[in-house]
Design a binder for these strands. Structure first.
Length: 309
DNA sequence: GCGAGTCAAGGTAGG
DNA sequence: CCTACCTTGACTCGC
């Protein structure tokens, strides 16, 4: 098991998602942001390795306006050495990497234009991971998309569109159950047609499940869609409800009692867990401490003390 | 230097 | 058909 957190580190004084407004777009701004973002990504990964956090989600904002028509700059070529260097450190330290395009990426959209934009956005994500020379265990996670008044048809459309994507994207693509529309059962239907792995989101599952099957059973159904050799250990998203917050809001900091309960529920399995919690690496470190002290967590990937960079 | 308003992209619910 | 809301951080502008 590896433990990780998404995109932002609040301890380090920099972020890997510097951006700007479209109105102020220029090649200079783009290069400047990308320089800062790659430099900061290095620092974050360095911090993570030093602290035993070996799972990380790279921000979709790493390259501002990457798939926007306004941007015709060949950033792939300009920064290929930098990407390659970061990739080498990721591989050397056996860091697990994921990416998560945001809500506007909808491959099952009713309109061809939105599908095309989504396809471009997915290709951008795959390019980043390719430029780093990461194998297919580095994943891109998306939700199934909209329902558009007819879930059956929308699932069919997802499958048709999935089959239109290039191999360099689909080999990295996984789907995640969401909190309102598509639950694990829906994802399983898509998996039976496409063999796309299902990323189990524990919090979303709590908020959106239609049967009496337990978390354990669904966890098992979802995680066994991952092919160990090509996909690596299953990725899992974990978070909990913010106490006294509006429903669905993610907690400010980790609830170790709840996390411990989740670990026990999923005990026999090896997987990598992403903690979607507001205070980011702070909670991830608490969880790491907790898990290392918990003898029941098997296959625990202890800190590799190799120095980065 | 600060706070408020706004930001590429879509969808759903409620009216 | 139209509007509010989802959800988050950070850019940008006006003071």
């Amino acid at each position: 098991m590896r433990i990780g957190y998404p995109c932002i580190n609040r301890t380090i004084d920099c972020t890997a998602n510097n951006t700007f407004r479209l109105k102020s777009y220029s090649e200079i701004r783009l290069i400047d942001s990308l320089n800062k973002n790659l430099e900061c990504l290095r620092k974050i990964l360095q911090f993570n390795v030093e602290n035993g956090l070996l799972f990380f989600r790279i921000s979709s904002d790493l390259v501002p306006f990457a798939s926007h028509p306004r941007n015709s700059f060949n950033w792939q070529k300009r920064f290929q050495e930098e990407f390659k260097g970061i990739g080498e450190h990721i591989i050397k330290n056996r860091i697990r990497i994921s990416m998560h395009p945001d809500q506007f990426t909808l491959i099952n959209s009713l309109t061809e234009e939105i599908f095309q934009r989504s396809k471009n956005e997915l290709e951008y994500h795959a390019e980043i991971l390719d430029l780093m020379n990461l194998d297919t265990t580095a994943k891109i996670q998306i939700h199934v998309g909209g329902v558009y008044g007819d879930k059956e048809k929308s699932i069919e459309r997802f499958i048709e569109r999935f089959n239109k994507l290039d191999k360099f994207v689909t080999r990295r693509l996984v789907i995640e159950n969401d909190d309102r529309l598509y639950n694990v059962n829906d994802c399983l239907k898509i998996n039976s047609e496409t063999h796309i792995p299902i990323l189990f989101d524990a919090f979303h599952h709590k908020l959106n499940n239609s049967t009496t099957q337990t978390t354990q059973e669904y966890f098992k159904l979802a995680t066994r869609t991952w092919n160990e050799k090509n996909d690596g250990a299953p990725m899992v998203d974990y978070s909990s409800q913010k106490p006294d917050g509006p429903p669905r809001q993610h907690a400010e900091t980790i609830d170790l009692a709840d996390f411990g309960f989740f670990l026990r529920q999923t005990e026999p399995f090896d997987y990598d867990v992403m903690l979607e919690i507001k205070d980011k690496e702070k909670s991830a470190l608490k969880a790491l401490d907790f898990a290392m002290g918990d003898l029941r967590v098997k296959n625990f990937n202890k800190l590799a003390s190799i120095k980065l960079f």
